[in-house]
Amino acid sequence: MDDESTPPPPPDEHAPPPPPPQTHTGSPTDFLKGVVGKRVIVRLTSGVDYCGVLQCLDGYMNIALEQTEEHVNGAITNRYGDAFIRGNNVLYISAAEAI
């Protein structure tokens, strides 16, 4: 079995060579793969933010965070060593450091 992380593109004579990978390109899935293990900000639909290290996520966008701070209106309201966030509450995930 080969490493699946960078599957080769299908051969296509007319396509130009693929550009070098940049942080601004790629699919949402590529973004999510890139931020695992990094500090992220998760905003919920309620407006509450969770800042922490993204341990993992699944297809429902259920999220496991580490060293998490809960921010409401800019103020820290809680800290969690670990936190599971149910995916339906997630509005977005934002990278808080370089990918």
């Binding site: 919920l44 936190a83 149910r86 509450n89």
Partner: peptide, 13 residues
Amino acid sequence: RGDGVILVSPPSR
């Protein structure tokens, strides 16, 4: 019921 759950935090490991 699960639909009301926002966050679950275990005891700190």
